[in-house]
């Protein structure tokens, strides 16, 4: 399995991911956070696209940095990214078939292999001759998935796979992902800001704020009874059909303070003196890991009042 062990990543001198430990699981793992939380950077490290300053990315209990050529190739075949359509995930100058062919390992009958892959993601094999701009957003996203499947991976790292798509198209891509997970035994690491997606595709979730994991545990527990005030803020901000209006804290854009205390203190409605003095460590509270001094209180309250 793929895991991050105490990973810290920095661009220049600025650390963007701090001491993150995360383990892939068969039921799917969600990585939730807002833009700038460091979730995409962590994903790039898990793909071997960048190297942590400290800590390690490990696959099959082997450190990625210490792997030889053959091990590295095996890792490549096991873990593949699915980037979002908006990020130019497909080379605009290449035909879809050419893009997919880059991942083919066996050189026999490439045409048939490509056609099979396109069919498996619900696309007409004839689309292999088209270029990305001739496809709709949903078709492109399916082609991106087909390319990742070319190496027969066991783990897909999905970075906001549906956020550029219309809702009905998004729903069909989610169905496809669920179907592929069943059929091919794939497990997903889903990176998103959309909590509803995590609920659907991932048994376990990690919530990231300012480069740190602030809460992790079973997705259902996190979404229904969040312990960290940030997880609660994320959930309460999601608009719901027929539900209460999204709740705003009014401080969503306050810059996180890293120097001393809790990184979430400036946005937190529950912050007390201790939060400003001492950074909370991840610890187990009520069936999940959480980094909050007041987690006992929040889990207590949320059992009485669901909307705390």
């Amino acid at each position: 399995m793929l895991e991050a062990r105490g990973v810290t990543i920095a661009y220049g001198k600025t650390p963007v991911v701090h001491d993150v430990t995360l383990t892939m699981e068969p039921g799917g793992v969600g990585l939730i956070g807002e833009s700038g939380s460091g979730k995409t950077t962590l994903a790039r490290a898990l793909l071997g696209l960048l190297t942590p300053v400290s800590g390690a990315i490990a696959y099959g209990s082997r450190d990625l940095a210490a792997m030889d050529r053959a091990e590295r190739a095996r890792f490549r075949d096991a873990v593949q990214p699915v980037f979002q359509d908006g990020s130019e995930a497909l080379d605009p100058r290449m035909r879809i078939g050419q893009s997919i062919a880059e991942g083919l390992r066996a050189r026999t009958e490439p045409g048939k292999q490509i056609a099979d892959l396109l069919t498996s993601v619900g696309l007409d094999p004839a689309l292999a001759d088209r270029r990305p701009h001739q496809l709709s957003g949903g078709q492109r996203q399916r082609a991106i998935i087909a390319r990742a499947l070319a190496v027969r991976p066991g783990t897909l790292i999905l970075d906001e796979p549906t956020s550029a798509l219309d809702v009905t198209v998004q729903a069909r891509i989610l169905e496809l992902l669920e179907h592929l997970a069943d059929e091919r035994g794939l497990s997903y690491l889903l990176i998103t800001h959309n909590l509803a997606l995590v609920h659907r595709l991932c048994r376990t979730s990690y919530v990231m704020f300012a480069g740190r994991i602030v809460e992790s545990g079973p997705s259902r527990t996190l979404l229904t009874r969040p312990a960290h005030p940030y997880t609660a803020a994320l959930r309460d901000a999601v608009p719901r059909i027929g539900g209460p209006p999204p709740r705003a804290t009014g401080r969503a854009e306050a810059a996180p303070r890293i120097s001393t205390g809790c990184p979430y203190q400036r946005r937190c409605p529950l912050a007390v003196d201790r939060c400003r003095a001492e950074r909370p460590e991840l610890r187990e509270v009520a069936g999940r890991m959480v980094a909050c001094h007041r987690a006992e209180e929040t889990t207590q309250v949320s059992e009485d009042q669901p909307s705390a």
Binding site: E34, V167, A233, A237, V238, P245, P246, A248, G250
Partner: peptide
């Protein structure tokens, strides 16, 4: 999403308290 909630809160306030009319175009049913 948290920032969206704040902008929505402001829009609701302007609409409900200041009587401002709003024509909103969106793909997001929720």
């Amino acid at each position: 999403v948290t920032v969206q909630a704040e902008v929505v809160a402001v829009l609701r306030r302007l609409h409900e308290e200041r009587g401002l009319a709003v024509l909103l175009v969106s793909h997001d049913l929720a």
